[in-house]
């Protein structure tokens, strides 16, 4: 378990890289980009909670 955590937590670790042909990206960066896209899509479709009546 400690080894697993240390992969993600250690500053000395070069990180995990994913590659498709010439395209390469660090796993952490890919996760951040995917989360941003998810937030954007959810923001468009999730209903906003109705508070007090607006004009």
């Amino acid at each position: 378990m400690h080894d697993f955590v240390s992969i993600f937590a250690s500053l000395d670790s070069p990180g995990i890289y994913l590659g498709w042909g010439a395209f390469q990206i660090q796993l952490g960066n890919l996760i951040v980009i995917l989360v941003m896209i998810l937030l954007f899509v959810l923001a468009l479709f999730l209903p906003f909670p109705s508070g007090r009546k607006r004009k």
């Binding site: 954007f40 959810l42 923001a43 508070g51 607006r54 004009k55």
Partner: peptide, 14 residues
């Protein structure tokens, strides 16, 4: 005091 109704959307909170 208030905002227009169209601001009540998640896309406006970022």
């Amino acid at each position: 005091e208030d905002q227009p109704g169209y601001v009540a959307s998640w896309i406006y909170v970022f």
